[in-house]
Design a protein around this nucleic acid. Structure first.
Length: 603
RNA sequence: GGGGCUGUAGCUCAGUUGGAUAGAGCGACGGUUUCCUAAACCGUAGGUCGUGGGUUCGAGUCCCGCCAGCCCCGCCA
């Protein structure tokens, strides 16, 4: 109801200014406006919108809140345009004004939405806004070469993908960037170690299974932490690699290829589109970062390393935190790479991406790091005018015991295994139900439904939680057939498909819709919120808001479905109700699609 | 020691620029299958919003102190 509420806002603003012309003029002189505080009603019994401003303005206007409200109402009731949108305004409580929309207004919104593939969600207009460029970088997923993807990558991948989908839908040109860990000290360790234990892996493709590679990586890491000579060798190896030594590069690219194929399988299963541009891509830009930071007088040499000290403002006598830009051995580390990446992304094409907004989807543990990186970027003047840069943090994935999710033996859980288990459990649930209901379904049906339900459950469980907090992973809860879960949403959609199959699919003449039941109006009002939710998620980058909305929509639909006859209703009501079904299906489908979750006709 | 995040019903969590009587789901208890998938729907019980101050007409929400848990803090990413 974005358009409606915008129109309403103008009417309410006018009414307030007409009611108190002197105060309005005064406010205008000081460069502000009287704020009527028009918001959505907090409860259905208060109508559709409420005006809260009278209470706050009381002091300034030296008038009792209810008296202010009374005057605003008088103005509103005099305004014909307002009366075509709303029933007359009502004063309530200590000075709130409750507004209820005209039923014709709601009905006509429903009609336009049924026909609109975007269901009322506007595309962002980049010409009118302060942002000149529509390009956004979403940096997400980012697994490491020579390691398997695990639950830690799950959140970044799922949340990042959903945000990318929503931004794309709103009209941004989104660059989905997989900033994979394909560079740095870890490779020095791995290559050095492989030289002695499995030299063939450095010259021949697929000499090792990925699992073995992971095992070697663990050994290398252990050696690195305990053996000083090995540590030195590894660092030298990194320097060779970063300098472009051909043998090192060859070994490195073999390792990358192998991991890459493994990642792709997961992305296929999760239906994730992402463009790989790992840390190594920025290798050729690293030296320039040093040059620019030196020119900007930001670098300080400390113990042989080039550093930037932060925390200028927060000087409570505390130690300043520091970011190392170039190590004492000449090597670069992840801060350097992140700065080079940031620089590149904001730079204009062809020397960069020409982005106006960069979004990093990583765990909350990196908040300090990004804060530092962003501060440096600001000081170096690398953020263009109107440019936005945001860290989108998320919490840990915990097991049912509240601790970091591990296997029974204490190992990290492979993402692959986790997804397989979700699908298998969904299959067991489904078969049990088929048996109970005496249904016969093909193998293909069972396979398709279990995969969809399993993957959807994992994705939805993650997305439906506020990402900031830690997230307790539980197969039982996410696959539960009731509650705020993917199966619940999928089921609502299946019910609608059922109606369509039984004669609800005829071409509807939606010119004369008529609604009488409270369940219908409740559904209508919920359906019309969709556009606001999408715009909100675009701004706040919180997909759980969309999940909550879809869940509530499903609940309201299920109530409507239970309590109001549809196919058995007379023609007029039948068409009207089928229209609501159709719009509900469209909304659920689009909403789930924006979360990266597919839907089903039957389940 | 410094910094960040979190603390809301028995459990898992929502809670919109501060707005009216703090909401879901699960679990518990009770009820509902003669249109369309009961994987559903309806009802009941359950709260000092960690704690102490402050700002405000109004605070779960903003500010300060304290307590608890988790995470980060110079050559790993």
């Amino acid at each position: 109801m974005l358009t409606l509420s915008k129109g309403l806002e103008i009417q309410v603003q006018n009414a307030l200014e007409k009611a108190f012309p002197e105060a309005a003029a005064q406010a205008l002189d000081s460069g502000s406006k009287l704020n009527p505080q028009l918001v959505r009603a907090s409860k259905p019994e208060f109508g559709d919108f409420q005006i809260n401003g009278a209470l706050q303005l009381s002091k300034q206007l030296k008038t009792a809140p209810r008296e202010i409200a009374e005057k605003i109402i008088q103005e509103l009731n005099r305004n014909e345009r307002f009366l075509t949108i709303c029933n007359s305004a009502v004063i309530a409580g200590p000075g709130f004004i409750n507004l209820t929309l005209q039923p014709e207004c709601l009905t006509s919104e429903i009609k336009t939405r049924v026909k609109d593939p975007r269901i009322g969600v506007p595309k962002r207009n980049f010409i009118d806004t302060h942002t000149k460029y529509s390009r956004v970088v979403v940096d997400f997923s980012s697994p490491n070469i020579a390691k398997e993807m695990h639950v830690g990558h799950l959140r970044s991948t799922i949340i990042g993908d959903s945000l990318a989908r929503i931004l794309e839908f709103r009209g941004y040109e989104v660059l989905r960037i997989n900033h994979i860990g394909d560079w740095g000290t870890q490779f020095g360790m791995l290559i050095t170690h492989l030289k002695t234990v499995a030299p063939e892996a450095l010259t021949k493709a697929n000499a090792l299974e990925l699992e073995n590679l992971v095992e070697f990586y663990k050994q290398a890491k252990q050696k690195f932490d305990s053996d000083e000579i090995f540590q030195k060798q590894s660092r030298e190896e990194v320097v060779r690699l970063q300098a472009g030594d051909s043998l090192s590069i060859k070994a490195w690219s073999l390792l990358c290829d192998q991991s890459r194929r493994e990642f792709q399988q997961i992305y296929n299963l999760l239906d994730i589109q992402i463009h790989e541009r790992g840390e190594s891509f920025y290798n050729k830009y690293l030296a320039n970062v040093i040059t620019e930071l030196t020119d900007a007088n930001l670098l300080i040499v400390d113990q042989g390393a080039k550093c930037i000290f932060l925390d200028e403002k927060k000087n409570k006598g505390s130690k300043k935190s520091v970011i190392i830009i170039q190590k004492s051995d000449g090597g670069f580390n992840y801060a350097t790479t992140d700065l080079a990446a940031l620089r590149y992304r904001f730079n204009q094409v062809p020397e960069g991406d020409g982005a106006s907004r960069i979004i990093y989807v990583t765990d909350a543990g990196q908040a300090n790091h990004f804060e530092g990186i962003f501060e440096i970027a600001k000081r170096a003047n690398w953020i263009p005018k109107g440019g936005r840069i945001e860290h989108v943090p998320f919490g840990l994935v915990q097991g049912p015991d509240g601790k970091k999710l591990k296997t029974r033996s204490g190992e990290t859980i492979r993402l692959r295994d986790l997804l397989d288990e979700a699908v298998n459990r969904a299959e067991v649930d489904l078969k049990l139900r088929l048996q109970k209901e005496g249904r016969e379904e093909s193998e293909e049906f069972i396979k398709n439904v279990s995969t969809t339900v399993g993957i959807a459950a994992v994705k939805y469980a993650d997305l439906s939680q506020n990402r900031i907090t830690n997230y307790q992973f539980s197969f039982d809860r996410m696959l539960a057939l009731q509650g705020n879960t993917a199966p619940y949403l999928l089921y609502a959609l299946v019910r609608i498909s059922g109606i369509a199959r039984r004669g609800g699919s005829d071409d509807l003449n939606i010119e004369n819709l008529e609604f009488n039941e409270p369940q219908e109006w409740e559904l209508i009002r919920e359906l019309l919120k969709f556009d606001e939710i999408i715009v909100e998620v675009e701004e706040e980058l919180l997909p759980n808001r969309l999940c909550t909305y879809l869940f509530e929509l499903s609940q309201i639909f299920n109530r409507f479905y239970e309590q109001v006859p549809i196919l058995k209703a007379d023609m007029q009501n039948r068409i009207s109700r089928l229209t609501l079904c159709r719009l509900t299906a469209k909304t659920l489908q689009l909403g789930m699609n924006l979360l990266g979750i597919p839907s089903l006709e039957r389940m």
